[in-house]
């Protein structure tokens, strides 16, 4: 036991030292005068097709990163999907036993909130071009609506995702890849280089596709596994 507390003390000591070193390094950090990436972004902003610099970086200047990011999300989803086959499902929402008035309040609020959340997601997607917002924020709101529906028992757990649902997962990526291929034809040799006149509409199409797919994927992380895990006791 004393060995363990000694180990704890050593770990805490080293963590504290690391923290103080990091903070010291941050305070001593020289103000850089060489790199002006943000100025570059602002100079090129007119060519990006959107008016918000973060959206311009995400979907135009560093569009390749976002494309790969969607693939990373799909990889993680594949890992989660693999786990769904190995269990006997049982809906989590059934196991939450609420008293009737509380359940009614939950159902009522879910039914009121979810349409509003879909509206908010659409709004966030629309304003992404010129103020904070965009596909990822909208997708997070959509996914939260899915989780709320599942927890209140209105939407069952996705036990065996249907083909249309699977298509929904990859729809955004396919659309993104299609536009990537189109850019290759429109400006040969340059991947994801949108023509200036079409950049705005391309970004909006990609963002709309990504909102749908990312919303499904993020909701899927919860809804694919949202049933009880410990079936062993139930089996025996």
């Amino acid at each position: 036991m004393s060995m363990k507390s000694l180990l704890n003390a050593v770990v805490i000591f080293f963590s504290a030292t690391l923290g103080l070193t990091l903070i010291w390094a941050i305070l001593e950090l020289p103000v850089s005068n060489h790199i002006h990436l943000s100025e570059q972004v602002l100079i090129q902003l007119d060519a990006s097709g959107v008016r918000h610099p973060t959206t311009a970086v995400l979907l135009n200047f560093r569009g390749f990163d976002t494309l790969l990011e969607v693939m990373v999300l799909l990889l993680a989803l594949l890992g989660v999907l693999d786990q769904t086959k190995k269990r006997k499902p049982k809906n989590l929402s059934i196991s939450i036993r609420l008293n009737q008035p509380y359940l009614q309040a939950l159902l009522w609020s879910a039914r009121v909130l979810v349409p509003m959340m879909v509206l908010v997601a659409g709004y966030l997607l629309g304003v992404g071009g010129y103020q904070p917002g965009g596909a990822f924020q909208a997708a997070a709101v959509l996914a939260a609506a899915g989780v709320l529906l599942n927890l209140s028992g209105l939407l069952p757990t996705w036990r065996e995702p249907s083909w249309s649902l699977r298509l929904g997962f990859i729809f955004g990526l396919l659309l993104f890849l299609l536009i990537t291929a189109m850019t290759l034809f429109l400006s040969p040799g340059l991947l994801l280089q949108y023509p200036i006149t079409l950049a705005g509409i391309f970004i909006l199409i990609i963002e709309a596709g990504l909102t749908l797919s990312l919303g499904l994927i993020l909701a899927g992380f919860f809804l694919l596994l949202s049933d009880e895990v410990n079936n062993k006791k139930a089996d025996e």
Binding site: S38, V57, L58, R62, T66, L73, A76, V80
Partner: peptide
Amino acid sequence: DPIPQAMVLTGIVVAVAATALALAFVR
């Protein structure tokens, strides 16, 4: 600065995905 903002936005989404995968493995 829009560049770290975009990086962090990407990072948050990937972190959510990694967390979900880790939770699936823990289950």
